[in-house]
Design a protein around this nucleic acid. Structure first.
Lengths: 187, 187
DNA sequence: TGTACATCAGTGAACGCGCGTTCACTGATGTAC
DNA sequence: TGTACATCAGTGAACGCGCGTTCACTGATGTAC
């Protein structure tokens, strides 16, 4: 994740940086090319279109994120262990590549409509996990979607506060606190 | 809020609807004019520019929302009463005008950078309220920003789930559950 | 080693398009006498 | 009541601009003989 060699990776990296900084719609192909030290037509040697470039950035990352979360949700030893593992996966993603996390955070609404409610959808994974824990009597019964939303909201909003400079610490540094807050909503 | 008379109000209403449906950047002045049954140049009799139209939609609503929240935060009778009042204000806004709520939700990231961290900023209000409660020993001490973020996250994420059709009930119908979840994170 | 050729990332110039916006004009409505 | 005029929301045509994208071309690099 930290080393980027080919021009294609450099393009993706700079594009992501500009998208986070100015918003996806405010960044043109010329802007991206400038940032990489190329001319706009050169980008088309690597991506068929602007849309494909953005799609490759968003969907590949979102799928990988869902995959990791799914693995954490499969954790054995009860719901509280699963929840802890899921929180840790998300916080680790933030700690490891904050730019990517922010990109997903800022652009989610532009893409979420196009994403099928598939099995490896992060929201779906957490909803199912919570619902299963309720059915098993591990946590108090209630509206599983609402509780899952609360867990997601706690994590996502923390990332948002960090993005806008209201929080100095990254998610990697407050993982334990976040995990504790999430535990409270299922107690 | 429910009745709109002048052409200016109709423009604002249709613009908001289109912005929520397609994203702010995907909607042109011609699109807005079409929806109102006008031609694009007519819009300039009511708004100096596209930017002013959007600004009027966002900033006026955001300020009013902050004002109501500030009032709820001034509620006497301890932090738990304040928290309950704040949750109710936000849920009521959603129940009363879901389109406006969704507009603020979807466009926040495009504007939040330009908003000064003023006194009537919703995030600021909740942060201060939580910090005061911690200082007064009303709730367990901890990172006030993190706890305030958790509260905001629980509410905002619920609205997001509703927006994407994962939740059938509006915030007005789950106000009590949301308030209960928020209480848990400060216990 | 030298020459001819293939490869291919990158470029300059140009395209058609839709955008925000301007402006002279229209045509309905209200007012003055 | 009839006529002349002011008002003003709305319009058609046009503008300059930046966008995504195409395409013939360049020029460095590697390979074959």
């Amino acid at each position: 994740m930290l080393e980027h060699f080919g021009p294609k990776d450099r393009i993706k990296r700079e594009a992501m940086r500009l998208f986070v900084e100015h918003g996806v719609d405010a960044v043109s192909m010329r802007d991206i090319a400038d940032a990489v030290g190329m001319k706009a037509p050169s980008l088309y040697a690597h991506f068929r279109s602007r849309e494909e470039l953005i799609g490759e950035l968003f969907f590949a990352s979102y799928a990988e994120y869902g995959r990791q979360l799914g693995q954490a949700a499969g954790c054995v030893g009860g719901f509280r262990r699963q929840l802890d593992a899921m929180v840790r996966v998300i916080c680790a993603l933030h700690a490891e590549d904050e730019l990517l996390f922010n990109f997903l955070l800022l652009t989610q609404h532009g893409f979420l409509r196009r994403i099928p409610v598939a099995d490896h959808n992060p929201v779906e994974i957490i909803c199912r996990s919570v619902a299963a824990a309720m059915a098993a009597g591990e946590i108090p019964t209630g509206n599983a979607t609402l509780v899952a939303g609360a867990i997601i909201g706690i994590i996502v909003q923390t990332a948002t506060l960090k993005l806008y400079g209201r929080l100095d610490l990254g998610l990697g540094e407050v993982t334990d606190e976040i995990a504790a807050l999430c535990l409270k909503v299922v107690s």
